Every structure is written in structure tokens, then in C-alpha cells.
Amino acid sequence: MIRAVIVDDHPLIRETLRQYVETSADIECVGEAADGQETISLALELEPDVVLMDLNLPVKDGISATYDITRSSTVRVLVFSALETDQDVLRALQAGARGYMTKRAAAHDVLHAIRLVHQGDLLFAPDIAELLQVNQRSSQGEVKRLLQRLVSTPRLSGRELSVLQGVCRGLTNQAIADELVIQLSTVNTYITRLNKKLGTHTKIDMYIQAVKEGIIPSPFAERPTEQRL
């Protein structure tokens, strides 16, 4: 029997999750917590197999609670959160989470994720896997490489990425401004920021570094043929 602790600051969500678990013959809910500090105490006291962890918690957030639990016990943490950005996922994985499910997930998907995490796998919701460009069911090696890539790659905003793509396509600053419907001075500001983040000084250097970091596809990358599709 898989022993699980359910963590969420909303009583209704905890009740719903507990009902999910009670439909399963191989998973039981051995405890519930409403904040991060309570979760840590409960995890260390009960030593469950899996903690189903929300991230947006009072007293102590879910990321900090995950870190403390995984550093001081063998309890595995599966994130179950409404937060879905790559930064949220990155922080959770760095803290020691063994998977990341979103609150749009169906009941059977949540139960399946608990089982796989208990077995030692790492599991991601389909949209999170697509965001991170990994398989839904990943190995520890794959996740380690993912973390190395995310940590080493400069974090760009959506607008910064759009400007960078324009630069790499050989557009002038004015052409980028016209395409994005922003002021020329704004484009110049973004390019200054990009040079700082990428450690570059010219547009050519910016393009080379963007390819090196994997932000922009290499022009020499093999393109899939029609037969491979």
C-alpha cells in the first residue's frame, strides 16, 4: 500500500484529493497539511511514501517545504500545483521534487503519477513535459541534464526572445520595431539587455551565443525529412 500525504491550503481541494485516493485500492491518505511547515513536520513524523505538494502555501511555501523534506528524509515529493511556468518547475525540481502535475489533471492521472513516483520514476503532466521538452516519464539522468540546461541558459522574457529572433533573422532595429509594433527606442533597450544577458557586444556575437546556448536553432541542425515525419 502506498502511503500518501496530501498538501493544499484549500480544504475543498484536500477533500477532493482524498476522495480521489480513496477510490484506489493501492494508495491511502495517511495525513493532510495546509501549510509548508505543517507539511514538513507531518512528513518527518509519518514518513509517507509520497507527498502530493501544492506550491502556493502559507507559513512556508511548497518549494521550501520540498527542499527540507527531500534533504532530511527518503520521502518523495510530487508537485500538484496551478503554477505552470518553467521557472516554477525548475525551482521545484531543484528542491528535489520527483514530478510535476497541474491542477487540470484528471483523477486517474494523479493516481498514476503517485504510483510512478513511488516506483522511483519522474513524471510530468503533458503540458509541463512539452514546456520542458522532456518525456512525460523521464529518467533521473534526463532531468539532471534538463536542470543543467535550464540553469546555464540565460532566462529571457517573451519580448526579449522576440527581439532576439528578429536580430538573428538579420532584421534592422527599425524592422524589428515595425514587426513587433513597438518603438525603435524600446528595441534598442531590449538589445542592450540582451547583450548584457548573453555577454555579447555585437549582433553577430549575439547570434553566435544564442545558437551556442540553444536559444536559437543552429543553421546546421539536421532538418527532419518528409519520410521521418
Rank of each mutant, 00 (worst) to 15 (best):
A95V: 09
I63V: 13
L111G: 01
N56C: 14
S41G: 06
L156A: 05
L57I: 10
L83Y: 11
T102D: 06
L132S: 06
T85G: 08
G99F: 11
L52A: 05
Q133W: 09
L147D: 01
Y100D: 02
G158F: 13
D86S: 10
V117G: 02
Q140S: 15
I63E: 00
P154E: 04
L90E: 05
R155E: 11
V117W: 12
L83K: 03
T66Q: 03
V117Y: 08
V77R: 01
T153W: 13
V79K: 01
V163S: 09
A125H: 13
V117F: 14
L116H: 08
V163R: 03
Q87D: 11
L131I: 04
L57W: 12
Y100L: 08
N56F: 15
E142L: 06
L116I: 07
P58T: 05
R145Y: 14
A129G: 05
S41Y: 15
P58Q: 04
L156Y: 09
P58S: 06
V75L: 07
Q140L: 15
T85P: 02
V51A: 09
L78N: 00
S72E: 02
G96C: 12
E130R: 14
Q119V: 07
P48F: 12
L122N: 00
K103D: 02
R159H: 07
S64M: 11
V89C: 08
Y100F: 15
S162T: 12
T74V: 10
E47L: 14
D68Q: 11
G158E: 05
T102G: 06
G36F: 13
R71K: 11
L122M: 10
D121Q: 10
R145M: 13
Q148K: 08
Q136I: 09
R159F: 14
R91G: 02
E130M: 14
I40K: 01
L111I: 05
T85L: 09
H108T: 08
T102M: 12
E142D: 05
S73V: 03
D68S: 12
L93F: 15
A125C: 11
V77A: 04
T74Q: 13
V89H: 04
T74N: 14
L52E: 00
E84H: 10
E160C: 04
D49G: 13
L52V: 15
S138R: 04
V50F: 11
D35K: 07
D68Y: 14
A33H: 08
E142Y: 08
P154A: 09
Q37K: 10
K60T: 08
R145S: 11
E160I: 06
E130N: 12
I40R: 01
G120D: 05
T153S: 05
R155F: 15
L44H: 06
E84C: 10
V134C: 03
A95Q: 02
I128P: 02
E130G: 13
E45H: 13
G62E: 06
G141D: 12
Q94A: 07
L122D: 00
V59D: 03
H112E: 10
L93C: 06
K103F: 09
V50R: 01
